[in-house]
Amino acid sequence: MIKVEQLCKHFGKVKAVEGISFEVEEHENLILLGTSGCGKTTTLKMINRLIEPTSGKIFIDGKNILEQQPEVLRRGIGYVLQNNGLFPHYTVAENIAIVPQLLKWDKKRIEKRIIELLEKLHLSTRLLGAYPGELSGGQQQRVGLARALIADPAVLLMDEPFGALDNVTRSKIHAEFKALDELKRKTIIMVTHDVQEAFELGDRICIMDKGRIVQMGTPSELLFNPADDFVSGFLKEHKLQLELRSVQMHNIWQWLAIQPAKMGPGIPAETNVWAGMELFKFNQEDFINITHKETHEVKSASFEQLMSAFYQYKKQQAHE
């Protein structure tokens, strides 16, 4: 869907991005992760040509975007900014309607689409006449997302979209983000410096440093097979939690003992280990019952049994 080849961007002598290449599959969510100044935002902005590359090629759907008219290209790509970038002199409705108006949709179509999106994003229609300054941070970010999604672009670029939000609002929006059907049919590239966010939202993560890609892979690939010290160092602080989150029950299925179901809640095997552990903690359960989707086999486990299975899985990963 999106293909980047040998992309470079030099600002004078500073090499912000230095020959990076990657591909993003359709409907995939790729996270560009790294410290500030690593070149992740520059890379993102070259994809909608807010920044023109020094050299290299970018293809979307097989078409070289550098040969397209930038304005037309951008109208087909959703863009969400950290500080939302809402127009302070436009109402919420006007802000959301910017792209359709550029595309010359008729009024009724725009209105219908706005109502539809507001519902999905849990925003009240009463906000339509309000100005961005009158909204909370979370509401502003949702309006920013609605503005990016309204014309239903195939590609969505997000530059630290949740960076300006407090922790509580952020995890709430993360949950909504994952549940939003609109986003499931989009190819998304998101920039963040927040490791937890990257692991929570990303199908694949691309760790960048000094303008280059250090490692690219699924969350568990990065965790269990870090390419070098930089990657393991980068993930170190949150390592255990990330590991528990990135491993699902069916990954450790073979190490769970087969025993008759005990009293306790049932969960599907797609649940990650971290979520399973939370049930013990918050619900004071002794056992949880896990159901395999395909075989409909049920295994139950105590906290200690779960942990032991997880460590055996880890040991095996390290040997591969």
Binding site: N48, L50, E71, V72, L73, R74, R75, G76, I77, Y79, L81, Q82, N83, N84, G85, L86, F87, P88, H89, I98, V99, L102, R147
Partner: peptide, 24 residues
């Protein structure tokens, strides 16, 4: 950020000036 959003939305230079920069 507002200017960048306007450009990223696909506004031409003239539209950015007329709809965003001059009013603000």
């Amino acid at each position: 950020a507002v200017k960048e959003a306007a450009v990223a939305m696909g506004m031409s230079k003239w539209q950015v000036l007329k709809k965003v920069e001059l009013p603000l």
